[in-house]
Simulated assay, not measured.
Amino acid sequence: MQYAKLENGYLIPAPGEVRQGGMVIMNPGPEILGPLGYKPVEYAERPEITTPGNELREAYTDNGDRITVTWVEYTPEPAPEPSYEEQVVALIRECYSFDDELAILRQQNRKPEEFAAYDDYCEACKAQVKQKLGMV
C-alpha cells in the first residue's frame, strides 16, 4: 500500500527510508510512517473523459485515517498565440539560424548581396505575419 501526506494541497509520497534513533529504516511500515503524518492512499477508479478536449487531474481528500485520490475533469486553458515578434523569428529560423544571422550582420559591408537577400527575406517574413494577423 502506498503512503503519503497532504501538504498545501499536494500529495507528498512517503520516503523509502527514515532516520530514527540513529538508525536508517529502509521501507518503513505504517508503525513508522503513521506518527510522521503519512497515511494510506486509496485511488478511486479513473473515469472516462466526457467532453472531448478536456483532461483529468487528481483531487485529494484527507479522510482522517487515509487519503482518497479522485479525478476531476477540467477544460485546459488554450495555449496563448505566439506574439508577432515570436512568429517572425520562427519564420526567419526556417531559413537562417541565429549564428547565420550574426555572420551575415557582421559581414554586411563585405557581402552586400548576401545581406540584401537576408534583409529581403526578413521583410517578407514580417509582411507574411502581419497579413496573417490582420495587421495590414
Rank of each mutant, 00 (worst) to 15 (best):
A79N: 07
G9L: 03
Q20N: 01
R93P: 03
D100M: 02
P40K: 05
I67Q: 12
Q87E: 08
C125M: 10
Q2S: 04
Q131C: 03
Y3H: 12
R46P: 00
P28S: 05
Y10S: 15
V129C: 01
E77A: 14
D120W: 00
A127D: 10
R93T: 10
Y38V: 05
Q107S: 10
E48P: 09
A4M: 13
Y60K: 01
T75D: 04
K130L: 11
T70C: 13
L6I: 15
D100C: 08
V69L: 03
P80G: 05
A59I: 15
R66C: 00
G34I: 06
K5L: 09
E48R: 12
G9Y: 06
T75S: 12
D120Q: 08
E42Y: 13
C125G: 01
E58Q: 11
E114K: 13
T75G: 01
K126F: 04
Q2P: 03
G16P: 09
Y3E: 08
S97T: 15
P28Y: 06
P13R: 09
C125E: 13
L36S: 06
M135W: 15
P76A: 07
E7C: 09
A117I: 00
I49K: 09
E7P: 06
Y10K: 15
A127P: 05
V18K: 07
I12P: 11
L33C: 13
A90M: 00
A103L: 11
L102P: 02
F98Q: 14
E86C: 02
K39V: 03
M1Y: 14
A124C: 04
E114T: 10
D99L: 14
K130Y: 01
E123T: 06
A4I: 08
W71T: 04
K126P: 01
V129G: 02
A59T: 11
G34T: 08
P13V: 02
E58F: 05
L6E: 08
Y10D: 12
K132N: 07
A90S: 15
P52Y: 04
T68E: 07
L56F: 09
Q2H: 09
Q128V: 10
P15N: 04
Y60G: 00
V129P: 02
P82L: 04
P15I: 01
P76W: 07
I92N: 03
E114N: 12
K5Y: 14
E7L: 15
W71P: 01
E55C: 06
D65G: 05
G9N: 02
E85L: 05
E81W: 09
L56N: 04
T51M: 08
F115W: 08
A124N: 14
D65F: 10
I25L: 12
E77G: 11
L102N: 14
Y84A: 00
F115I: 00
A4V: 11
A124S: 04
L105H: 05
E17N: 14
E85V: 05
Y84L: 08
N109S: 11
G64I: 05
C122N: 01
E48D: 13
V88H: 04
R110T: 13
P35A: 10
V18W: 00
Y60I: 03
Q108W: 05
C122F: 05
A103I: 11
V89R: 07
L11S: 05
G16H: 11
L133Q: 12
Q107N: 15
D100E: 07
L56G: 03
I12N: 06
T68A: 03
E94C: 11
T51V: 12
P82R: 14
E94T: 14
K5T: 04
G29H: 08
A124Q: 14
